[in-house]
Design a protein around this nucleic acid. Structure first.
Lengths: 214, 214, 214, 214
DNA sequence: TATGAATGAGGATTCATTCAT
DNA sequence: TATGAATGAATCCTCATTCAT
């Protein structure tokens, strides 16, 4: 992930006019949210208002576009995320509450990006799938340490392994999010539920505080 | 879910010679593990050793085959799973250990089925995707209650909500499984890791016992 | 059309049990009413309640079945028609009235046969189309002379060519029938119109009587 | 039928290079002369010298192509026909002679179009068949009134219904044309017969003049 | 850079016909 | 005779990618 061989910085598309580039990338994300195979390049160029030829001038293949986009989306979300989170708060459970609120904000700010990243699967055996999974792995390897390495483990009871406790907290945090997220729901469907989400998250937090903290 | 009006029992394919049917269904699962769109009917018939015409004699469309297969796979796994699990053990953490072992067994017994069910996506907005999601939802609605409704909640500390505690346990159980499962790994890759898995699972179990139980 | 090389008499199907044969031929007519290409052998055997193999035992190809059926239907209609018509009446206009009534009767008695014969086109360039057209030509060559050769030409004005007058009458008779027949109408649609038909036919007859007859 | 919202004018194909478009439409007509089902898209593109993809770029389905073609052919024949006919001549029998000559001209000028329009069936119960029939009905409803509404009925004998007389004339005109036209004949087959045709047409005309006119 | 017409291999589905029983 | 499972060539349509301008 060092800057030297970062494919993004050197990608042809970066020399495109910024406005147009945004149109292309947004159109592509929107289309790829259907899944790689279901996405059609024609729809992308139509939505972006550019020609087929130009798309393939900048991205030599559909796969190239997809891979670039995935990396781009992931990087954008990460940098946005870390620019907003307050890493001063070293109580992991309090941080969790913060993360939940931040995630809700980001989903609203970049709904298309989330939809795209979630849908980015491509079917397991495809050649590009490997690269995608590597990107996702890199994402985790990059993000989780930054989020959870510096937490204040002195808050935990002395008779428990802090790393395992952190794991349980993270699994719960993500498990709950996954349970509430349904592929068929739209942003509007979530709106009326936020209060419940926050209340339930607090209940998990309190439970874990009572059990894991001194 | 009762056997009488189970659409599976009445499916044309059930009148096919059992051996051949198994070849077809296995070939189809293997191919669909790539994802719906990536799967090619030609590959299925080649692998199954039957003609294209015969496949479409039994399944009127690719989608029909896919949907049948998904239901079939889910039902088979569920029934196999429940025929092996000991529901007498009402300590949820002990039951978890059992489930882990059972899952490892089943993954070895039916690797293709697991690969298929995991990969079964179809691209978000397809009409059939809705059916798949319904099947998956039905699966959860059917399986989780049977696994976790009758656990002995008297083991939990009196000052915690047992349902939330169960949630945390289930999230941990599944989160750990998901973290260790990688789409790029084959069965052989897991082999040398089982001891570590079991040790780590035990560590989570002990942590939660110490924190959640009286 | 002489008996010696009449393919019908010698056709394999004639050795089939009469009831079953009727089921087959009716089913086939019904299906071929959609047009040759649109007709599906599966539908025929399903409707007839016989096996695919048996159909192809009796008719070596779909084309054979179609051709046999066409000849069969035409012959049946002709013989039925001539068994009912009174050829004593030698006034061509009176005979026309008779023909109209007879045709209405026959359409009601054998709706499927009429539907089939009308639809029997097969697309011009097809190899079988030639044979069909020959059968239709033979039909005309066979029927028209029997219907119109023996009419009483002495009724016509002396200053007109009787053959041309007969032509005009036949053209009118058939043109009117074609104009009223619509491919989208069913038998029921015609029901309430018969009175109008008969009245209009009479008007043409009177017009031609007044103009052509002495 | 007004030009403004004529769907033809707006069809994608109209943006194709005129030469190529003609090749495509001619090839399609030639192929569809076999009937809708017998026509094969491969043959069309081979004959037109374009790729499969291009055909389906302009016509989203085979049916779309067929329907467009039918409307196109009908419209072209009608406009050509009316641009040539002299509607000053209000004697219907004289007009008939004109129509016959005109038709012969048109059949020579556009043999493929005539072949196509005659063969355009599609099999009775298809949804598109309904549209075809509507187009044909519109055609008749459009053409006949323009041809026969303004004829000079004062020429007819006072004791006959002019409308019925016109009907008889039209039926004769069309009946004779249909009798002489055989689906198996090619243009060359007709060549040596024109003199006979014209003579016979004149005979019918004289017969009807003598009988129907004052 | 920018266009969009053109390509053609690839894929799902149909259906007449065969053949072992 | 009778069955119906099995075949596979034929057909419509899709879509990533190229290329002349």
């Amino acid at each position: 992930m060092n800057t030297k061989d970062n494919p993004m910085e050197e990608h042809k598309i970066m020399s495109m006019d910024a406005d147009k580039r945004d149109r292309v990338l947004n159109a592509a994300m929107k289309e790829f949210a259907k899944g790689y195979k279901n996405a059609v390049t024609d729809a992308i160029v139509r939505e972006a208002g550019i020609s087929k030829g130009l798309l393939f001038h900048y991205f030599s293949t559909k796969k190239d576009l997809f891979l670039f986009l995935h990396e781009y989306a992931l990087k954008m979300l990460i940098s946005e995320f870390f620019s907003l989170i307050n890493l001063k708060q070293r109580d992991i459970l309090e941080r969790w509450r913060q993360i939940v609120l931040l995630k809700i904000d980001l989903v609203h700010k970049y709904p298309a990006i989330f939809a795209f990243v979630n849908a980015a699967y491509m079917g397991e055996n495809d050649d590009a799938a490997v690269e995608i999974n590597e990107q996702k792995a890199t994402f985790s390897d990059d993000v989780y340490p930054r989020l959870f390495n510096d937490v204040d483990t002195s808050l935990f009871r002395d008779d428990i392994d802090p790393q395992k406790a952190i794991d349980v907290i993270v699994f719960t945090m993500e498990g709950y999010a996954a349970r509430e997220a349904s592929p068929n729901k739209t942003l509007e469907d979530y709106e009326p539920e936020y209060e419940r989400f926050l209340r339930e998250v607090d209940e998990y937090i309190h439970l874990l505080q009572r059990c894991f903290y001194k």
